[in-house]
Every structure is written in structure tokens, then in C-alpha cells.
Amino acid sequence: MRICRNSATWLLLQVSVVCGQLPYHALKLLDSNYARTQDAFQKLCRAGYLEVVKAPGHKSFFVTDAGFEAYCRVRQKDRRKSNAFIWDKPTSTHNIDKAVRLSRINEAWLFFVLLCGRKYQTSLQIKREQERKAVRSTDSLKYSRFVGCIYDEQRFIHPVYHFGNGNQRLNPNGEKNAAVRLAGAMMSFEKVILVETPEAIADILDYSLWALRKDPRTLRHMRLNFHITWEDNAILLPLDGLAQAFVQHFDRKDWRAGIAQMEEQEKVKAGVTISLLQGRWMELLEYLAREPDPEAPVRIIAWDFQQPVMWVLRERGMLPAKARVGVCQSRAE
């Protein structure tokens, strides 16, 4: 198979080498023309350059030996003209449990580092660092949704979790190991939760609203899925291109100052205004938990990447009938 530079095929092959095993969902992050990326994926699979791992609820892919050789041939040609760097062949697995975790770790790295240009450390790097320092070296981060950490301008740390589109229960042991890694650092402890679809965010919000309406004493002995609280007002992010601008800037002081100004301007226009521009949802959940008058006017301001979630919430009847949603363009910032 001939690999042409600057083609969707070459881009996908490079990403497969640089990032390692990825979930099929990652194809949506690579090119605005999703159909073209899917076509490139099929070509690479037919040529034996990519291999697919499938199971109910999971599909991932990784570069084969033949695919890595094809990558090296193209890079060697570039290397004669310039000192082009050639990556090592990444690790991959057919084991489903390991494939789910590895592919999600790699997708988060692809999103934050390659697409958003953020300072980021994966949970695998953190685990190796723990073992070198003999900090809880007998523990493991496997089976946790914890996939890494973002660092902001002040070196605060934001733990990142990848829920995919399925189970939303955090693993207690994985949480403890993540906490050990973060204990000595300056940190905001604002969790960032990645999901694949707007429906998955709506599921978290629906469950969180149910928990918020319950007496805390009744929840004390229950095994709960992840739910948002004021103490842990996590940022929920869909893995798509629209969220990139937000991720690049959300913890910058000037960005937050600009958001505060936008919120003040919007509050002048309506009696009840709820802002989702910080990426957090607890303000809306608390308003809904009070079971407001469905006829009461309320204005919700959200980013463009949050709009699909609002559509799902409206379809489920979770929003008041008179609620209006104002949408801000994240890319314009």
C-alpha cells in the first residue's frame, strides 16, 4: 500500500505510532472530515497496517509490525532531508480489560497533548514514577478511570478521568493511588471527567440530581456511581473538537476574568441566570433540585460544546419549560 504524505492515511498511521492503542472513538478527534478518516482507517486495516480489538462495548485499534515498518519507510525518506524523529513501536494488547484502559489513557494523551497543547502526565508515567520512589509501589492504578493529570500556569494539578460511554463508578484503590501522587503538589483538585457522548454527561447529571435530592444519611452505605457535589464540582468534558479551545484556556486567570465579565453582562438581561461557562454543573443541579416552577423564566448560558448536553436534558424533561439557553462560541475566545 502506498502512503502519501499529508493524506488522512498517513495522519492516522502516525497517530497510531505516536499514541499507541486507541479507541475507535478517537477517529472523531483527528479530522473534521470524519468520513475521510473512517475511509483511511479501512484502508490501513485491509493492508494489515492496523489491527482491531473488539468486545461488547469496546473497539480499539493498534499499529501492526507491517504498519510500523511502513511508518519507518516514510520517516526514513523524510530523515534524508531533515533530522526527522522516528518513534519506537508502541505497546498494544488483545486483553479486553487492558485494552479498554490502555486505549483510554492514550486517547486522553492525544486530546490534551497533541490537540490542546497542554502540560500533561499520563497515569502510566505517574505509576512508573511512584514505583521508582517506592511510594505505594505494591499498589496499581489499573481498573481505575484515572488516566492522568493536567498542569496549569501555577503548577496546580487537575486529575483526569475517562469514563468512555459506560460504567461511571470510580475505583476506590485507584483513587487512593492518584491521591498519593498528588499529595505533595500544589493542586486545585478539580477533577476533569472525559466522556464520549453528550448522553453520558446527561447520565452523570441525572444521577447527580437524584443523589442531591436524597438525604445524605441514606446514601452513606450505598455503592454510588460518580456524582457531582459542591465539594467535588468536577468539570465534565465531551471528547470532541469543540471542547479544545476551552481546554486550552479554562484555568488561565485572564480567561476566567473574561468569563466572569460575560456572566455579569448576562445577569443584567434576566432575573435568574445560571452559568456553565466554568465547565461545572453544580449551580444548575442545585437549581433543579429545588424543583422550581416550570413556568418560571430562567436563562442558562453555556459553551457550544455543552449545547448537545442541554438538548438531551431538555428531551428528558429535566429543564424547566421556560428555560432559555444562550450559547457562547468557545473558539472565538
Rank of each mutant, 00 (worst) to 15 (best):
I3D: 06
C4Q: 07
N6R: 15
T9M: 08
L11D: 10
S16D: 05
V17D: 05
G20V: 03
L22C: 02
L22I: 00
L27D: 02
K28V: 00
Y34G: 00
Y34C: 02
T37L: 07
T37I: 10
Q38M: 12
F41M: 10
L44Q: 12
L44F: 02
R46E: 09
L50D: 04
V53G: 01
K59R: 13
V63L: 03
V63K: 04
D65A: 14
D65R: 06
A66S: 14
A66N: 11
G67L: 01
F68P: 07
A70T: 05
C72M: 11
V74P: 00
Q76N: 11
R79S: 15
S82W: 03
S82E: 08
N83A: 13
I86L: 15
N95L: 03
I96M: 04
K98H: 05
L102P: 01
S103G: 04
E107Q: 14
F112K: 05
V113S: 10
L115F: 07
R118V: 00
K119M: 07
Y120W: 15
Q121E: 13
Q121C: 14
S123F: 00
S123C: 12
Q125I: 01
I126R: 05
Q130V: 02
Q130M: 14
E131G: 01
A134I: 09
A134N: 13
S137D: 07
T138H: 04
R145K: 11
F146G: 08
Y151N: 01
Q154D: 14
H158Y: 15
P159H: 11
F163K: 08
F163E: 03
N165L: 01
G166N: 10
N167A: 10
L170H: 09
P172V: 08
N173I: 15
G174Q: 03
E175A: 09
K176F: 11
A183G: 03
G184P: 01
A185N: 12
A185Q: 12
L194K: 10
P198G: 04
W210G: 00
W210H: 02
L212D: 05
D215Q: 13
D215F: 00
R217H: 06
R217G: 11
T218D: 15
L219K: 03
L224M: 10
N225C: 11
D232L: 14
N233S: 09
N233R: 02
A234E: 05
L236K: 08
A243E: 11
V247E: 11
F250C: 11
D251E: 06
R252C: 05
R252T: 08
K253I: 12
D254R: 08
G258I: 00
I259T: 01
A260E: 12
Q261F: 13
E264C: 04
Q265T: 05
G271S: 11
T273V: 15
L276V: 04
L277A: 04
R280C: 07
W281D: 04
W281T: 04
L285W: 08
L285P: 04
E291Y: 06
R299V: 13
I300Y: 12
I301A: 09
V309M: 07
M310E: 02
R316W: 13
G317Q: 06
L319T: 00
A321L: 13
A321T: 05
A321M: 07
K322R: 15
K322N: 14
R331S: 10
R331E: 12
